[in-house]
Design a protein around this nucleic acid. Structure first.
Lengths: 209, 209
DNA sequence: AATTTTCTTGACCGGTTGGTCAGCCTGTGA
DNA sequence: TCACAGGCTGACCAACCGGTCAAGAAAATT
């Protein structure tokens, strides 16, 4: 017997179904890519008829764009952990922890982002050229300040950022490969060890330890 | 006026067309993923009729599998640079250089590999479980030997390997993002600086410098 | 020169895709 | 209570997909 569904308000309905669809879409896009994903598959995963998806999201591209944008927001929030830190040990350490946590909690989102960038960023090119470029420039200045203050070795700030992104996102994007080599999904202890390893190697690599 | 095509031998024809198709396929699979790629697109890029593709490769999956396998071979060859090195500075240094060179020369291949692993490795799962696992186990022992000999800090060998893969392949898989932030494709000097940055940070990060 | 084998290709096919739409259902405000 | 706007969906469609095939062209073999 199914539980009696309490009547929902209009705004609730919209909110609920949009997030339901977005969650399903994130998963399907991560598993199959944009071209491999089908609206029918997303609909089935969301438990809704396909036509209902098109009521909330006009086209497949619109839906995909929303998924990518949502991920970008989460991704940018982690950046705040880097600011207002006295030095690289705290700032970069916190950033690594935040990014590793995202790789763990939102592996599908990370994959969709990777997929989008890998294929030339047809949807979020403007974000790369504006928001991401500005954010990067700001962190480069921050790192240069730390270097000038003698708090870390004179590494190239851009390539340090690339390494931070690469090392942390790798645990989401290549999670399947890691799990295979690990003999199964990473446990809590595995994730802790991974985070510690990345932090130790990078912080020592930039001469901050 | 077109140049008179010298008559080709059978083996030449087969060889020539197969590599022509494989090159086109690598590019298209990298740009669109397996699901987004179409045989028609690959055929157009190779300058052949679609039916001709199916003469050399029975199915789209067969063609895709060949592309992934070819990349895996190149990828494994770079591993040899790590062996027969007296210590981590030479071994890991050479490995980073080899992997960076692959990221530069075969960015499409790297993307197809990333795409394959990201989507659960449906085609090359057996390679991960056999060849890659054995290779990894061998390098873990190599690194453990270097640690025991006091040639580097006691880092977790697996996570060091993940960082090597992540940092180097990032320049291929996320090349578009890097080029955007860089204001254009990386020049020779940019690639040299990138390689040096990765080498310096990682080698210092594992206490080998 | 004749014959066999390999290679090439336009035309075609069943199945699937993203997207549409008319009509129905259901909260909401008067 | 009633009218209306927002939410829902089965049925449908043109376009496109991977793959097939028969018939012809070209090379190898006899």
């Amino acid at each position: 017997m199914t539980e009696a569904p309490r009547p929902l308000r209009r705004t609730e309905i919209r909110q609920q179904n949009e997030t339901l669809i977005l969650q399903a879409a994130e998963k399907v896009f991560a598993e199959a890519g944009f071209g491999g994903a089908t609206m029918q598959l997303i609909a089935d995963m969301a438990g809704l008829p396909k036509a209902n998806l098109h009521y909330y999201f006009a086209t497949k591209e619109d839906l995909y764009r929303r998924v990518v944008q949502d991920i970008f927001e989460i991704w940018l929030q982690a950046a705040e952990s880097m600011d207002q830190a006295p030095g690289p040990v705290e700032g970069i350490g916190a950033y690594i922890e935040a990014k590793m946590e995202i790789s763990r909690r939102h592996p599908d989102g990370s994959k969709v982002w990777a997929y989008e960038v890998m294929h030339g960023a047809p949807v979020i090119q403007d974000y790369l050229e504006t928001t991401l470029r500005e954010w990067t420039a700001g962190r480069v200045r921050l790192i240069e300040g730390w270097i000038a203050a003698g708090k870390m070795a004179p590494v190239d700030p851009e390539h340090l950022l690339y390494m931070l992104w690469a090392a942390t996102q790798h645990y989401a994007d290549f999670g399947h490969q890691i799990a295979t080599l690990n003999g199964g999904p990473l446990t809590d202890a595995d994730w802790q060890r991974a985070t510690d390893s990345v932090k130790t190697m990078i912080l020592r690599g930039i001469g901050a330890l």
